[in-house]
Design a protein around this nucleic acid. Structure first.
Length: 560
RNA sequence: GCGGGUGUAACUCAGUUGGUAGAGUGUCAGCUUCCCAAGCUGAAUGUCGAGGGUUCGAAUCCCUUCACCCGCUCCA
């Protein structure tokens, strides 16, 4: 089975990550913490390199004076680093607060999950007609007269009728004798029922009472408190995305850094979400790192910029070694889009933990229109881009009241810029590079027995260790010469390792397994003519070059 | 959240009807070794996922719990 092969491959990658110190489970000695992961000595180098490659391409490489030939024009992108905890109003205006602030109850019998405030019901007195207690319920003596809370998920005017229907069935009353139903209360939501009465609640799809769990919060956002006192007033949230930090600093950046539209603000940082089901290694974590960029442009230019960023981001993954057959650009269907949006595309990777033909999201490139800047200015907008009003006719969530428009002194126009947002998951990207790099060779050993060689074919710029230096044998001055070369790499700021332990073949294999692209070996010939061998991880080929030139050569290859 | 599976050394795994743990790989040290998991000698390493119970005695039986994997469900 192809899927078993894929699972086995993924398990080997996870084992390698642990064995060689790329990724560990968080708090492992205490039994682990679901949805959280630690990066080990090699993993942290790999992840740093991913960040650095992103920052290089998204920030450092860009300048209005040096336009990318395929871009509409030249532009700047500046970096920023904003706090994880922001003013709580930020999340109300951004829409995150409303998105998932609901209490949910589960029904143990019907295996359903319901929003507490959507479940309507009425109290009624009577004897339940049911005989056997349903699965998951509180056992009830049959035909006992009591007070019950009958519920339904039916909405609006239908709710009352639906309850009558349900009650007839539950109490064995004929549908033309509904006057026999002894209602004790008007329609209310389950939120009005105290927890200690849940034994008497009959779920919308249950056949008996007491099958509902207590209401549980399903909050996307992690909560915390900012003062020593944990009161409702000082409740705060750990950011679920880094983007809002850039939107709320739009004016600061404009006023302080001589940028002109079009320009971008980029940020790399941690975000937090209470994922319901953390799964698939680091893919769905509750604490994760994002690499996001908000590109501000004139509304009329935004479709061109959207296409540009979507294509450019695809190229970035390819340039760092992701094969095109494992990468998918998935344009969202027009019906999935908010009407103001020109498009949203996901960049997806064929992770081995997914079935063949399935892809997991690495990055979303979204055209966000002026939704965010206008919301933070005027108040949270609804889908029609009007300020969403509360019952009192005032904005439901007030914006900052600050003017976040931009005056273009070339065209003499004032407008709220539109935003193109390429938002990548750093941990997912790191994981994708690991999965892509994992490779097994077979080669005979000196006894002719086939041996598996595990290689991480990481792009040299991503490899945690760039080069290893070995003395072929531990004498004749070879260790001393090798250490000298090793120090030259350290001095040049290139991450190198020295290893004199065990046979040369074993040392090469150790380096293959962690993805080190090059190994340099000092041998007998080095002592006479000053040359060393340079061995390539992928081709296994060796060339001889002067020891004095190796640092420059590797540095040059890393820049290429 | 539900159902199924798993959890023993750093990794992969063995461990009989209950009698307080083994292998291979890896790691480390020494010798050897002039290029792709070489050889010899030696060494270290386990709260048998955690907590509780039964028992004279638990890796093994029971309960609870945590984590991971698979399938549903849910979801940015």
């Amino acid at each position: 089975m192809a899927s078993q092969e894929r699972t086995a491959r993924m398990e080997k990658i996870v084992a390698l990550c642990k064995r060689r110190g790329f990724i560990f489970q968080s708090s492992e000695i205490y039994g682990g913490q679901n949805g959280f992961w630690d990066y080990g000595p090699l993993g942290v180098e790999l992840k740093r390199n991913v960040r650095q490659a992103w920052w290089q391409d998204m920030v450092v490489a860009n300048d209005p004076m040096l336009p990318d030939p395929v871009a509409p024009c030249g532009f700047n992108i500046v970096g920023i680093e904003t706090s994880i905890i922001m003013h709580p109003q930020v999340w109300k205006v951004s829409g995150h607060y409303d998105l998932f602030a609901d209490k949910m109850v589960d029904c143990r019998e019907a295996k359903g999950r319901y929003r507490l405030d959507h479940m309507k019901g009425r109290w009624i007195t009577g004897a339940l007609a049911q005989k056997a207690a349903p699965e998951g319920s509180v056992p009830t003596p049959p035909n006992e007269v009591g007070d019950w809370y009958v519920t339904t998920m039916a909405d609006g005017p239908e709710a009352g009728d639906a309850l009558v229907k349900r009650a007839c069935k539950l109490f064995g009353v004929k549908s033309n004798e509904t006057h026999k139903l002894a209602w004790k209360s008007e329609l209310s939501t389950l939120a009005s029922v105290p927890l200690d009465k849940y034994d008497h609640v009959i779920g919308p799809d249950a056949t008996g009472p007491g099958t509902l769990t207590e209401p549980r919060d399903f909050n996307l956002m992690m909560e915390t408190n900012t003062g020593a006192l944990q009161t409702a007033e000082n409740k705060a949230f750990l950011r679920p995305e880094t983007a809002q930090g850039m939107f709320v600093n739009f004016k600061n950046v404009c006023d302080s850094s001589r940028v002109r539209v079009p320009f971008g603000i980029a940020q790399i940082g941690k975000s937090f979400r209470n994922e319901i089901t953390p799964r698939n290694f680091t893919f769905r974590s509750r604490e994760f790192e994002q690499m996001e960029m908000e590109f501000f442009c004139a509304p009329a230019e935004s479709p061109k910029w959207y296409s540009y960023w979507r294509d450019r981001r695809m190229k970035w993954y390819a340039a760092l070694g992701i094969k095109s057959e494992n990468l998918l650009l998935r344009e969202h269907d027009k019906s999935e889009l908010a009407h103001y949006s020109v498009g949203t595309a996901d960049i997806e990777y064929a992770f081995p933990f997914l079935d063949e033909g399935e892809y997991g999201e690495l990055e979303g490139v979204a055209h966000r229109g002026d939704f965010d800047l206008r919301s933070h200015s005027e108040g949270k907008l609804d889908k029609a881009l009007n300020v969403e009003l509360g019952p009192d006719g005032q904005p439901k969530y007030r914006g900052s009241g600050k003017d976040l428009s931009y005056f273009d002194d070339q065209t003499r126009e004032r407008y709220v810029p539109h935003v193109i947002e390429p938002a990548a998951g750093c941990d997912r990207t790191t994981l994708a590079f690991l999965c892509e790099a994992y490779y097994e060779d077979e080669a005979p050993d000196d006894k002719g027995v086939m041996q598996t060689r595990v290689v991480l074919k990481l792009h040299p710029r991503l490899a945690p260790v760039k080069v290893a230096i070995f003395p072929l044998i531990k004498k004749d001055g070879q260790p001393e010469k090798a250490l000298e070369i090793y120090k030259a790499f350290k001095d040049a700021g290139i991450n190198a390792q020295y290893d004199a332990q065990a046979a040369i073949g074993k040392r090469y294999r150790r380096m293959d397994e962690i993805g080190t692209p090059w190994c340099i070996t000092v041998d007998g010939q080095t002592m006479t003519d000053g040359t060393v061998t340079l061995r390539d991880r992928d081709t296994l080929e060796q060339i001889r070059i002067p020891a004095s030139e190796v640092v420059d050569l590797i540095a040059k290859r890393l820049r290429a």
